[in-house]
Simulated assay, not measured.
Amino acid sequence: MTPILTQDQVHLIERSEMDYMVDRMRAIEEREGNPEGVEMKSFGKTVAFYSRTMPWPTFNTVKGLSPDDIDCIDAIVDFYKSRGRKPQFEIVPSRVNLEILKKLAEHGFYQSGFHTSMYYSMEQLPPDWRDSGIDIKEISEEEFMTYALIHCRSTGLPDDGIPYVADNNQVLYARPGWRFFMALIDRKPAAVGVMYMNQTVASLTFAGTLPEYRNRGCQQALIRRRIYEAAINGCQAVVSQAGFLTQSHRNMEQVGMKIGYIRTTWTELER
C-alpha cells in the first residue's frame, strides 16, 4: 500500500528539488571563470537561481518561498531586475499563504502554469527494470557529447548547443550523488536519464528520448533502473517532476510513482 502523503513528505519533495538544483548550479559556477555567469542567492530559506548566458526559466527561478520569507520578495525581484532578467517563482501548495500570492500579484506576477512533483516511497517494492527488454547502461565520462546530443534533440534545442550542454553536465560526472544512464535500442543510444542522490532521497533530474525512438518504453525502463539504483544505495524515496498528464507524468505513474503535489509557476507580466 502506498503511504498517505504528509506535510513532512511535501517538505522532503520540495527540499530534494532545491538540493539537486543547488548542486547542479554550483558545479556549473565552479567551472573555470564561471563562463555561464551563474549566481545563487539565499533570502532566508528561499533560493534565487540566475545564469547570465542561460536565460531559460529553469536557470532563473525562485525555489523554497514560504511565509517566513514574505518580506524578502521585494529584494528577490530587485536581484533579478538589476541583472535584466525576469524570474519565475515556483509555488508549492500548503507552503504559501494568501499574503504571499497577493504580494506576487502586486509585483505584476501571475500564475502561468502547473507542474507535477511525483514521489516513490521505498516502502513499495522497487520495480524490476530488467524485464523491459531495453539495455540500460551507465554513461562513461567519454560519452557526454552523445548524452548532450540526445538531451538537445529530445528537448528541441539546436545542435549548436550540444557542446555547452556536454560541458555543463560533464562537470556533474565526478560529483557525489550524480548518476547518468543511457537506454540502447539495437545497441544504439536512444534515451538518457539522470539521477541525483542526497542522503536518503533520490531526484530524477532529467530524461529525454530521441524522437525516432519514442513510444518504445525507454523512459519507463530508465525510471525503473534509477529507482532500483536508489534502493540499493539506501534511499528511502525517489522524487521527480513532470508536466501535468504529459507522457513523462504517465510513465512515472505506470511504474508506481504517485503525485506529491502540483505546484504553480508565477511569471512576471510583459510590459
Results as ranks from 00 to 15, higher is better:
68 D>G: 02
134 I>E: 01
34 N>P: 02
109 F>Q: 00
55 P>D: 09
136 I>T: 04
50 Y>V: 03
116 T>N: 09
56 W>L: 15
80 Y>S: 04
128 D>M: 04
88 Q>I: 15
83 R>G: 08
32 E>N: 08
145 M>F: 08
54 M>L: 11
100 I>V: 06
120 Y>K: 07
59 F>T: 02
53 T>Y: 06
49 F>C: 14
90 E>Q: 11
99 E>A: 13
28 I>N: 03
100 I>W: 00
92 V>T: 11
39 E>Q: 06
48 A>N: 11
59 F>W: 06
40 M>W: 03
108 G>H: 07
137 K>Y: 09
44 G>N: 01
72 C>H: 07
84 G>Y: 12
132 S>A: 10
90 E>W: 12
45 K>N: 06
101 L>V: 10
55 P>L: 05
66 S>I: 02
31 R>K: 10
61 T>F: 10
37 G>N: 05
71 D>L: 04
110 Y>I: 15
37 G>D: 04
125 L>C: 13
112 S>P: 07
116 T>C: 11
72 C>D: 12
117 S>R: 11
24 R>Q: 11
79 F>A: 02
102 K>D: 15
77 V>K: 02
55 P>G: 08
71 D>M: 05
116 T>G: 04
44 G>V: 01
138 E>C: 04
97 N>H: 13
33 G>A: 01
132 S>N: 10
94 S>C: 14
122 M>K: 05
85 R>M: 13
114 F>R: 14
138 E>K: 10
124 Q>F: 09
125 L>V: 13
47 V>Y: 09
71 D>P: 03
37 G>F: 01
54 M>C: 04
137 K>S: 11
78 D>R: 11
143 E>S: 14
76 I>E: 00
142 E>A: 13
